[in-house]
Design a protein around this nucleic acid. Sequence first.
RNA 1: GGCGGCAUAGCCAAGUGGUAAGGCAGCGGUCUGCAAAACCGUUAUACACCGGUUCGAAUCCGGUUGCCGCCUCCA
Length: 482
Amino acid sequence: MTNLKIYNTLTRKKETFEPIKPGKVGIYVCGPTVYDACHIGHARSVVVFDVIVRYLRAIGYEVTYVRNFTDVDDKIINRAGELGISTQELSERHIKEFYEEMDALNVERATIEPKATDHIEEIIEVIERLVLRGHAYEAGGDVFFAVETFKDYGKLSGRRLDEMQAGARVEIDEKKRNPFDFVLWKGAKPGEPMWDSPWGKGRPGWHIECSAMSTRFLGYHFDIHGGGKDLIFPHHENEIAQSEGALGEQFVNFWVHNGFVKIDQEKMSKSLGNFLVIKEILKQYHPEALRVFLLSNHYRSPVDFTHQSMVEAGDGIEKIYAFQQRIDGLLGPSRNEQGPGPLWENFCRAMDDDFNTARGIGLVFETVRQLNRLMDDIGERPGQQDQARLVSTRADLMRIGDVLGILTEAPDKFFEQKQADLLERKGIDIAVVERRIADRARAREQKDWAEADRIRDELSAMDILIEDRAGGTNWKVSKPKD
RNA sequence: GGCGGCAUAGCCAAGUGGUAAGGCAGCGGUCUGCAAAACCGUUAUACACCGGUUCGAAUCCGGUUGCCGCCUCCA
């Protein structure tokens, strides 16, 4: 029994989450159509649902998570044609890339990751049912869904057929009975991928693959269906029509949609040429910085991708690692199992409120500040109570990290790695730096502050920052400025 | 034209009717030879505007303005 509340697009309200089968959750999320590289918008959707699934598991649900690849579609066919390769080759290439990027982003694999082309049989079965039940009709080798036969059509997106017709620019297809009818099965054209069907050779339309695959793996009626907000209409609306039309019962309980990513205040779009591809982002920023950035906003709000936000997110993640490092230094790096403490409880309260990761992250920073102060006060020898508090917080922090998909590295390694990257990028010679620091230490011993400061300036010009500590001098590479 | 969303300090951002989390930047301080790092303090008579409901609203209702999204492939 939890207190999890989830905003449901279908009802436009936050509702208490009750799974259909106690203790189990079935969730389907629309994955990419694999015709091009994944952009930051895909990253948001995938990361958001990754965290949702991780959280559901953390609070004890057994989750079956299905995320599909749509690997047959007009865009894929067109792109493959342009590149002179097969659709299969194109989609395999992008699926491979998708996995590489998702691994880099520390996104867990879904339980099942089906491809549309592996489930043509199920797709055909759904269409046959729809034809049988009078929801679909064949016309000239194509099969269409007749929207007027489904009286709930529009219930997800809050539209009504008669209202839409006025202003919508819908491609006119003479074969359709209603302009909003959509294709379930497309008759084959030469050179396109095709499969046999009761209506001749052809291929599935967009939408139907998700109805078929979700039912195949999660049953007629399942708990959560997710995706980007842009999928509400027509994609998810049509899925509901198909699935409920074919099966005659409620399809999904909770519809969950994430907001868009903007770039420097502008909508990301091909015409503006501001499509940011994950690959490129990861060249410039740490993957955990990207996760923190994405999760610092509520998942339903739009989020604006800017360099400044990314730098701040990167600083934030470093601050947490530095804090962990400090506790490890004080208490030793052991990761003893600890029961959940107050930090975790508070985090769950935030997550229970429609997966409020932004509040959860705020909580983490607040705790970091409080315990940094505590460590300032207690010095080298923490009392038993303080020690217990630090150990418990560290354990909770790891638990939270597991849900948010961050803090995956040991702090020492994280900083080493970061240093190594910067050193390489800036072409800095460690031996030179250390020699100069030794020179400076000598100067400082002789209280030759002018010389010491001169060396510090010299190093600073090389982007080396000096930190004089009790045990000696630390140094690190300063961050890139742009 | 239809449907929906958003408007909180210099910037980003949370906010579940009871009196504004968090982060960044800034300022003052502790520490330091001076710095850096870390920490402390400080930064919204106030949540676009106007009304209303309420003992009480950023939070509910109505209206106004501005921005955005969807209605066409899109995470």
